[in-house]
Amino acid sequence: MGHCNITVLLPPFDVDARTLPANDPARAAELAATLNTVEEVLEEIGPRSVHDSVPYLYARTDLEIVQTAVWGHVLGISDPALADSGNDLPLLSEARGLRERYPDARIVGRVGFHCGAAHTEDIVWLPDGAMFHAAGWPGDEPFEVTGDPGAIASALGIPAEALEDLGLDEEDPADIEWADFAALALGEADPWGIERIQTTAFRVRHTEFATSTMEELYFTG
């Protein structure tokens, strides 16, 4: 997998991830319990670096591990149930639930999963309701884009040069690295590339639907 995370950025938005407070494990547990994919939080496993947030799954028990964090007014989520092969759009579903709970937040998610071919899903959702969502098979069809990335970029003050580097005006949507666009939407608030920043790992019982979907995705054959 490439990325597998959601960031919920509450006001104020001009934050540098390098200055975030330490994760609050108790609030992280509360966050984990609210996820659409989670039926019950079973136990706290302990702290993990954000660099360990991409799931490496060797056994079915690895599917039970999610990571969440509450760094002050910035929330982080990593869950193997966010991966998809084009059927269910779990990232969009989770973002909708987060949007209901945190209507003033900027919600940014990016997930990349390789199941014979790469499948990606990326989302940027702003407090005013403007939303951009892209999902599909990079370089191939089907690839679906909802919303105007240019309008999102303008609202966030993303420089035109950065959009040109992504090929936003010229490339087919299926050829654009939308995870890079999501990174631009987070800017300096992006915590996922800073190794010393920690989440809390939990063993959970996922919903029956999430569990069956993950088993099919990760352990087919």
Rank of each mutant, 00 (worst) to 15 (best):
G2Y: 14
D84Q: 11
A183V: 08
G97F: 06
L166Q: 14
Q198H: 12
Y56E: 13
V124N: 12
A183K: 07
A69T: 06
H206P: 15
R110T: 07
L126R: 07
D172Y: 06
H114S: 05
V70D: 04
N23T: 15
N5K: 05
R106I: 11
N36Q: 02
D165W: 08
T146R: 12
G46E: 14
R48I: 13
G46D: 13
A26Y: 06
F143N: 02
S154V: 03
R18G: 08
P142A: 01
V15T: 09
L168Q: 03
P55Q: 00
Q198W: 01
E195C: 00
I45R: 11
D175V: 03
L98K: 01
I6G: 02
L63F: 10
S154I: 09
A160V: 07
I65S: 02
V204D: 02
V15P: 04
W71M: 01
E144A: 13
A26L: 09
L63H: 06
P11E: 11
R101C: 04
G86C: 03
H51L: 15
A183I: 08
I197E: 04
E195F: 05
Y218K: 09
F219A: 08
E64D: 14
L91K: 03
E195K: 06
H133V: 09
A185H: 07
A162R: 03
E215A: 09
R110G: 05
A95P: 01
L9E: 10
E164Y: 01
A160H: 06
V145E: 15
S212F: 02
L10M: 15
T220A: 11
D14M: 00
Y58N: 02
I123Y: 05
E30V: 04
A134W: 11
H206W: 04
V66F: 02
N36E: 07
V8P: 08
T211Y: 10
T213S: 11
A153N: 06
A162E: 12
W71R: 07
G112R: 05
G136A: 03
I152T: 08
R18H: 08
G2A: 13
D169P: 00
P149I: 03
A182F: 11
A153W: 10
V41M: 13
A155G: 09
